[in-house]
Amino acid sequence: MSSNEFYPGNPAHAARSTAETPEPMGDDTLLLVWDAPNIDMGLGAILGARPTAAHRPRFDAIGRWVLGRAGELAHHTGVRIAAEATVFTNVAPNGTDAIRPWVEALRNVGFAVFAKPKLTEDTDVDPDMVAHIRHRHAEGVLRGVIVASADGQNFRELLTELADEGIPVTILGFHEHTSWAVNSEIFTFVDLEEIPGVFREPLPRISLDNLPATGAWLQPFRPLSMLLSDK
């Protein structure tokens, strides 16, 4: 296996039960976990609308970027580093037909997908992402981790532990929503739009720092109705 091979797991086990743990990697690994619901929410907040194809991330570009990071890590450590990437997503009731082409496209690129039914508003994939990171760490193969999410509350404790052990931690997201990582002294932050080719068109980014003279609408980060589930 080359030092920057993009390897999401054993394809022979792609349809394993969700109750089973992921196939052991065996090689030193740079791990990317992608929080699809959270990234979509952040992207929608920037766009002020549901993302279209022009503003959906291109996962082939993300994959090439991860391979490059794995190669850099291999160069610095002097050991072979495999790249593993998994997208974690929820599947809404009666939403399988809509999401299936996207899931198949991800798998064809080389990403593993962890899909979880969205049974309630509180059915999130965050615990599964944390469990997967901990699993790879327990195997002793984790040499770097990239988390694509703006949700620091669920990841910061674990990622801080890893950084304290000397494992490089990178947060991938949008600087508007990830100030906890942008200002961190122990994490590396990469804005998603900095990855070459990740978007077909530039994002229409407006913040309090670059308001037009005529003003701008800043959309909510989540629906107001979600307050009902916070009780």
Rank of each mutant, 00 (worst) to 15 (best):
R136H: 11
S3T: 13
M129F: 01
H55E: 13
N183D: 14
D27R: 15
V198W: 09
E72W: 03
A15T: 15
P196Q: 09
P204Y: 05
L30Y: 06
E157V: 12
W34T: 01
R58N: 15
R69Y: 03
A138W: 04
A181T: 04
V91M: 07
D128C: 00
L30I: 06
T86F: 00
D164L: 08
I99S: 09
Q219P: 02
R58L: 12
D28K: 12
A54S: 14
D97W: 05
D122A: 15
G68N: 10
S149E: 08
L192F: 11
N108G: 10
I39K: 00
T52R: 09
T160C: 06
V169G: 01
P57K: 09
P57C: 07
I62N: 05
E193G: 01
D60Q: 06
W217Q: 12
M41R: 12
G44S: 15
A83L: 01
P202R: 07
A83Y: 04
D230Q: 15
L158N: 04
L159H: 07
L142A: 09
G63P: 02
T86V: 14
S229D: 12
P196N: 05
S229I: 10
A138N: 11
T96E: 15
P168M: 03
T160Y: 06
R222G: 09
V125E: 03
G26F: 13
S3W: 10
T89A: 10
R64G: 02
N154L: 11
L228I: 11
S179H: 14
P212E: 09
P51V: 04
V109E: 08
K116A: 08
L192G: 05
E23A: 13
D27A: 15
T29P: 05
A82K: 10
V141H: 08
T96C: 00
I81Y: 01
S2C: 06
W65Q: 05
R50E: 11
R100S: 14
A85V: 02
V66L: 14
G48V: 11
R134H: 02
K231H: 13
P24I: 05
W180H: 10
L73V: 03
I99Q: 13
M129R: 02
F111A: 06
A61R: 09
A19I: 02
Y7F: 13
V103F: 08
R143M: 07
G215H: 09
F111C: 06
A54M: 07
E139G: 01
A92V: 13
F59D: 07
F221Y: 10
L224K: 14
A85F: 10
M25D: 15
V87M: 01
V182Y: 03
